[in-house]
Design a protein around this nucleic acid. Sequence first.
DNA 1: TATGAATGAGTATTCATTCAT
DNA 2: CATGAATGAATACTCATTCAT
Lengths: 208, 208, 208, 208
Amino acid sequence: MTPFSSHSRRSRILFAALELFSEKTFGGTAIPSIAERADVAVGTIYRYFPNKESLGEAVFVAGKQALIRAVLTDEVREAPPEQALRHIWHALVAFATDHPALFAFMEFQMHAGYLGAEAAAVLRELHSGLVAVISAAQHAGVVREGDPLMLISMVFGSFVGATKYAATLGLPLTDLDLPTMERAAFALLGVPAGGTSGSPAAQSSESD
Amino acid sequence: MTPFSSHSRRSRILFAALELFSEKTFGGTAIPSIAERADVAVGTIYRYFPNKESLGEAVFVAGKQALIRAVLTDEVREAPPEQALRHIWHALVAFATDHPALFAFMEFQMHAGYLGAEAAAVLRELHSGLVAVISAAQHAGVVREGDPLMLISMVFGSFVGATKYAATLGLPLTDLDLPTMERAAFALLGVPAGGTSGSPAAQSSESD
Amino acid sequence: MTPFSSHSRRSRILFAALELFSEKTFGGTAIPSIAERADVAVGTIYRYFPNKESLGEAVFVAGKQALIRAVLTDEVREAPPEQALRHIWHALVAFATDHPALFAFMEFQMHAGYLGAEAAAVLRELHSGLVAVISAAQHAGVVREGDPLMLISMVFGSFVGATKYAATLGLPLTDLDLPTMERAAFALLGVPAGGTSGSPAAQSSESD
Amino acid sequence: MTPFSSHSRRSRILFAALELFSEKTFGGTAIPSIAERADVAVGTIYRYFPNKESLGEAVFVAGKQALIRAVLTDEVREAPPEQALRHIWHALVAFATDHPALFAFMEFQMHAGYLGAEAAAVLRELHSGLVAVISAAQHAGVVREGDPLMLISMVFGSFVGATKYAATLGLPLTDLDLPTMERAAFALLGVPAGGTSGSPAAQSSESD
DNA sequence: TATGAATGAGTATTCATTCAT
DNA sequence: CATGAATGAATACTCATTCAT
């Protein structure tokens, strides 16, 4: 269930690091405290990660990989565009609900900007998977025209915004008005209204 | 022009801090380096700010105040709901374009979560201003129903997402497809299509 | 009454310094805090004292001068040896009771060792006055033989010891058993027992 | 021999600290200088002591423990009261002679007042040991009546006074007139004169 | 003369990283 | 492979002192 499953030393470290990073910030977390929580010696951490930054990146990468696994399933790849998008959205909500610390760490705290090549690579993987879905949806006339990556950044941003808002209130994401959230997000993409089973033939959301 | 205008020592410090924070992270910026860039002695910084954190908060607060001034103008307060929202959006784009470092610092790096009471206060001010506009728009049937603050968080999030995307590409925000951005954002809010002067009678984006 | 009487700026500074030194240690007292308590600007302190150390020394010197005035009175100089010694002792008790902060500062905290020429000079003055009394008493057979300064150091030390003890208990000096203190101190000096008017011919120093 | 014997890192630090504290004051000693003299890295000091203050306290505590070992021997505990007191006195002289820096640090510079619980605890131990001896002596009619702790504070104070005097002269303690010192100190306690083997029935404390 | 804002050298303390066991 | 004591560069912060007004 946990994104960092196997109970190898490596994943114990990764998991302890994640917990502490989201509790006390990346910069505010001391390596020895990670070692302690992972029940591992300080030196051991350096057998697995060359330095603190790369440990941070590893957490980020592992988290994004988990997100990819959660979001880009076979179901998604095989479903028709709108269905696929709905699947993705629900998976996203589920992921952020199940792993709030991880999600917060990845989105509120660690910007890809500070990270290295590996992080860029997972992000590319995630993005290309999503771009495929969006492009297909655009071709099907289900999503508005425009740079797919920009649209993805926007919907994702709107989701992150909502998550941050929930965090501000000290509430789990699921206490927000999820149906409205979804409607708003899909409107952003230009998916015609009508719920999951909405007739895809409907008019574009704003046929300017 | 700069949000930290007057050339008092205090604002020189604030400005130097902002620059360095957005160049090298809050945690990665050493106080002496701020002093040097502000052309001020280290000790002087401590005459104005009790500690580094509160300097960070002061930058954040000053930035958000500038944003408030830019976004919640008299024009906005007096315009009809949709017009008001368009004004805000354009002001937002202009602000993020003119002060990219400041915007990045506030949105990508310093979360209200790490900040104190003053930060909370400016945010409350910003939010209540925006909530007023959104609520009015909802009453006018121009914006979808739902928790105004959640909607605000989402549109704002989508804007931040787009900004981050532009940053990733190394481009200024204005190189993105702004019209699509706007259309997407307003669709998120449920504002009926039709551009600024669009007939409000037009079909709602998801007249379910 | 206060050793630092006249309300000149200089003595306000001296007094404020004394208070803070005995509250928070010499090293723990910041010059600005002295300025504040003396209701004087920081710079003003430097018009009267070249630096912090010399301010410390000045407090010490002023305090010792006050002690000299209290202890080496004309009465003392004119009284017969034992009477003189009793006068001194009572004056010492009164001084330490009336100015506990000053006494504590001079004896528990500032050692002549760290101080300069002026301090050495007042101490010489105090010592020579006391040596005169002790020597006379020795010649009169009222005080035991031995280096007068060593005897003085010892009685004074015993008094300081008692004062420290009272301070430890959080009590004023006068809550101790003063008669026993006096008897012990005079036995140290070898003054035959018998109270102020005791016949010097008496026997055991305190067989009562 | 040295109170801080074993050549563990901890005691090297303790010893270096003691030396520097007594040379340059607690406040005047920089941590790096301690590290250098102890031939240890700065950070290492913080593995053993949480902060400078607690290092100061540790030196104090270790010193007082050494003093306890030196002064409250089995011999003392088993000897008859007066003998016990003589033993203690000679042990005190020996201790202050052998470890002048340590003694000066503990008595001239670091007051229990600035110290914490551990310091209070050793002092309690020392005091209770001495009180036992004094009380026994009082019951045996060998020491004057009165609060034992006050009497202890006074004799100890007189010893410290003499030590300070020797220090002022730049002489070792042993260059003072030790027999007179002892006679004076024991007279303070009210121990009848007559030397170690003196018949306790004797009269005046020092009518010689 | 008095002021107090400005200074910057100096300090305690932390923490990523190494390496002998 | 794992350990964790040792390291020391780096950092935030203080405070005695100066000097333009």
